[in-house]
Amino acid sequence: MEDGTRYDRQIPLFGEEGQRRLARSTALVVGAGGLGSAVSVYLATAGVGRIVVVDGDVVEVSNLNRQILHWQEDLGRPKAASAADTLRGLNPEVEVEAVPLFADEDNLEELVAGSDAVVDALDNFDTRHLLNGSALAAGVPLFHGAISGLDGQATTIVPGMTPCLRCIFPRPPPKEQVPALGATCGVIGSIQATEVVKHLTGLGASLAGRLLLWDGYRGRCDEIPLERNPGCPDCGRGREL
């Protein structure tokens, strides 16, 4: 069988120019857990030129039910390094940068500023709110995803156009250990990856201004239309106060 090029099956979707756009783009994936695994794997295989993976954690055995970036042999390694190895193995054409740090106010500004797309693959809303602020300040789209059990949600935040994460969720929910099935991370992370590819190639209609809810128990999707909060402390007039 004759070999085609790596991207033969996706170029019909967005053309050679779309593929070049992907190759020229940098995606920042914040979190190399369950969501980060699905998102970064599909961004790497799609040929997003540069992927920066941020995670300060190390791989534990309890991660392996869902975090497909990390394998048995990676136990005890920094997740960022383990993620980078997996992604390079999947697609050596992609430049992968591992940042073995927890995202915080000090490092997010610079990381976000150099990106064309910011992926929220975090596991807590305190850091999500920091990331939201950084993405708004830099004017870079933020691709939100979150899960619990068989359910999850996703939306696409375009600074200045759509509601921001704090317009929708002004307060973090209580910190609790969330049950997590790998396949749920796969569903939501794949939706986020689809949104990023659409954004970078100009394909389709995004989840801008809509919260997509995946109800895995019932096998159904819902969506909630979203509106900006004019008094939002992150993107509205609350910011100037």
Partner: peptide, 10 residues
């Protein structure tokens, strides 16, 4: 009013 469970995991 919309009421939904908190999804915070990743």
């Amino acid at each position: 009013v919309a009421i939904l469970p908190p999804f915070s995991g990743g």
